[in-house]
């Protein structure tokens, strides 16, 4: 069954969610992220600001493209796609 592959930052301590797959189907990436947030309060806090706005402290890539250069949260995710969240790392 085709699925959407998710790559979450290891720094987020998302544990089992790293490399997780979402149900097959076509949906906007905003929905993918909302689904992810519903799966864990920790992930929800990392992904969304208190009033539900998607945070802008990480980049979301669909395959090799930053979704902001596509259609933002409306960008459609299809079966077989890979969604990768790239966090900002602060350490030096």
């Amino acid at each position: 069954m085709p699925k959407v592959q998710l790559e979450l930052p290891s720094a987020w301590n998302a544990g089992s969610a790293v490399g997780a797959v979402l149900p097959a189907g076509t949906m906007p990436i905003g929905e993918v992220l909302a689904e992810l947030g519903r799966s864990s309060p920790v992930l929800r806090a990392r992904l969304f600001a208190p009033h539900g706005r998607l945070r802008r402290s990480f980049a979301v890539y669909l395959n090799d493209d930053d979704v902001r250069s596509l259609s933002g949260e409306s960008t459609l995710v299809h079966d077989g796609d890979r969604v990768r969240i790239v966090p900002s790392l602060g350490g030096g």
């Binding site: 990392r46 402290s57 966090p87």
Partner: peptide, 13 residues
Amino acid sequence: LFPEPPPAEAVPS
């Protein structure tokens, strides 16, 4: 790339 910093509680050093 990163328009704003992450929330403070999400940033262990």
